[in-house]
Every structure is written in C-alpha cells, then in structure tokens.
Simulated scan of single mutants.
Amino acid sequence: MAAQRARGQRAGLTRQAVLEAALRLVDQEGLKALSMRRLGAELGVEAMTLYHHVPNKTALLDGMIEQVVAEAVPPKFGAGTWREDLSAYAHALVAALGAHPHAVPLLLSRPAMTPRNLRTLEEAVEMLHGAGFPLPRTLDVLYSLTSFVVGHAAAQVGRVDGGGSLASLDPTAYPLLVAAAGEAGEDAAEARFDFALDALLSGFERELAGSSATE
C-alpha cells in the first residue's frame, strides 16, 4: 500500500523538479521574479507544497546554484590529467553561467554548501591531491579557479568587459587603449578568458613542480 502523502504534496513533484522550475523562472524573468508563491504557481501547486522539497528560500537559492554547477561538472574528475580536468570544468562552468546569467549574482554571494556540491568538491580535491598537490593547496587551486570563472562571467553579464567601449574612445586622447581594443577584435572576451585560464593553470603547474621538488 502506498504511503499516504502529507497534505499539500503532489504526486511526482520532486526537489529536482522544483529546482529546475526555479532556474527556468529566473532565466526568463530574473531573480526579482522568484518567490515561493510564484514558483508554486509555475508548478501548479500551493506555495506551501514547495516546503516539502526545499525547507526555505535559502535552500532554494543554494539548490539553484547546485543546478548550474552540475551542468559544468564532468562525469568524473580524474578521467584526464588534472590540468585537462580543470580546463574542461572552467570552460563548462563559464558556458553554464552564460546560459543562466541571472544566476551569476547567486554564485558571487552564496557558498551553496549542498551535499551534491560538497561531493563534487570532495572529488576534485581527491583528484588534485592524487596528482601531487598538498591538501591545503587543493582548495587554493579550486577556489582560485572558480573565483576567476565566476568573475569573468559577472563581467560579461554586467557588460564591463572593456573591448567594445575602449575601441570607441577618442584615439587622440587614448591612442594605446583604442589600438589595443581594436586589435583584440570582437572575440576579445573569449580569447581573454583562454589566455587568463592558461596562465592560471600554468601557475598551478609550477606550484606543483615546486611542491614535488621539496619532498
């Protein structure tokens, strides 16, 4: 005999479905549109029903971050070299943030320590430690990489990437800035991301070599 559902629960509604609906709503209308009442209406249930799946709005927001991060996480860390894994993760994360620009402020403001995110972090730490990074340095690597990617995504969302605006400045007043922006071209943001990511990973590689040399 099936267990009796609590009042307000709906057959088939899951935490995953709630999080996916919340992310869709924010994608379409922005964070200001998100409320438990509005989300319930999108799912065809009363707002109180959602609390069977997410205890409060804080948990909802953390779960939305979990959803975005999940789009970027590889099936398994360690399938390639540590550098290949981190590069793939960085590119996937910036793509996921590009697909969900209204979620970028959440990643800037919340740690989102959900069990799923913590398992991902644990696997990444295991991969880096297995590659030779000291345990504390594994967190330095991961936090540095994530901060770089989220910062880049925030710049894109906020249109603070300077390429286009610099190119439109007065060339007599700012000849070098205008020339640099013009030579960078329309794909400057993507090229700049790859350049900075490569520099960051090369720095981690030098750190790893130095750690191995002192052992």
Rank of each mutant, 00 (worst) to 15 (best):
Val149Phe: 06
Ala173Trp: 06
Val141Asn: 04
Ala173Arg: 05
Ser165Asp: 15
His129Ala: 12
Val149Lys: 04
His129Glu: 13
Val160Gln: 14
Val157Pro: 07
Ala167Gln: 09
Phe148His: 05
Gly163Asp: 07
Gly130Ala: 04
Val150Leu: 05
Arg137Phe: 13
Ala155Asn: 13
Gly130Phe: 01
Ala124Lys: 01
Gly164Pro: 03
Phe133His: 02
Val125Gly: 03
Thr120Gln: 01
Gly132Ser: 06
Phe148Asn: 03
Leu142Ala: 03
Ala167Gly: 14
Gly163Ser: 11
Val125Ser: 05
Val149Ser: 03
Leu142His: 02
Gly130Val: 00
Tyr143Leu: 05
Ala154Gln: 14
Leu121Tyr: 15
Gly151Ile: 03
Ala153Ile: 01
Ala124Met: 03
Ser144Cys: 10
Gly132Leu: 01
Leu118Ser: 11
Glu123Tyr: 05
Leu142Pro: 02
Glu122Ile: 05
Glu126Thr: 13
Val160Pro: 13
Ala131Gly: 03
Leu139Ala: 13
Met127Pro: 01
Gly164Phe: 12
Ala154Ile: 08
Val160Arg: 10
Tyr174Glu: 08
His152Tyr: 15
Val141Pro: 05
Phe133Lys: 00
Arg119Leu: 11
His152Lys: 06
Glu122Asp: 13
Gly132Phe: 07
Val141Glu: 02
Ala124Asp: 00
Arg119Ala: 15
Gly130His: 01
Ala155Leu: 07
Phe148Ile: 04
Thr138Phe: 09
Leu139Met: 15
Pro134Gln: 04
Arg159Asp: 13
Pro171Gly: 11
Leu166Asn: 09
Ala167Trp: 00
His152Glu: 06
His129Ser: 10
Tyr143Ile: 11
Pro136Asp: 03
Gly130Asn: 00
Gly164Lys: 06
Ala124His: 00
Leu118Val: 14
Thr146Met: 02
Leu128Gln: 03
Gly151Asn: 15
Gly132Ile: 02
Ala153Tyr: 07
Phe148Val: 00
Ser147Gly: 14
Ala173Asn: 04
Glu126Leu: 08
Thr146Ala: 12
Ser165Trp: 14
His129Asp: 13
Arg119Val: 11
Pro171Gln: 04
Val157Gly: 07
Ala124Pro: 00
Thr138Tyr: 07
Leu139Ser: 14
Leu142Asn: 01
Gly132Arg: 00
Phe148Thr: 03
Gly164Asp: 12
Leu135Ser: 11
Glu122Gln: 07
Gly151Pro: 02
Leu118Met: 08
Asp161Lys: 02
Ala167Val: 04
Ser168Asn: 03
Gly163Lys: 00
Leu166His: 12
Arg137Thr: 09
Arg137Trp: 09
Pro136Asn: 01
Leu139Phe: 15
Val125Trp: 03
Gly163Met: 04
Val141Leu: 04
Leu135His: 10
Glu126His: 12
Leu118Cys: 06
Ser165Phe: 15
Glu122Asn: 05
Glu122Cys: 04
Leu145Cys: 05
Pro175Gln: 04
Val141Phe: 07
Met127Cys: 01
Leu169Gln: 09
Gly163Asn: 09
Thr172Asp: 15
Ser165Arg: 14
Tyr143His: 14
Leu135Phe: 14
Gly158Lys: 08
Leu145Arg: 00
Phe148Gln: 01
Val157Ala: 13
Phe133Thr: 02
Phe148Met: 11
Ser168Asp: 11
Asp140Ala: 05
Gly163Gln: 10
Pro171Met: 09
Gly151His: 03
Gln156Asn: 13
Leu135Gln: 08
Tyr174Asn: 11
Ser147Asn: 15
Leu139Ile: 14
Arg159Tyr: 15
Asp170Pro: 08
Gly162Phe: 12
Thr120Arg: 00
Pro136Gly: 00
Ala167Lys: 02
Ala153Asp: 06
Leu135Trp: 08
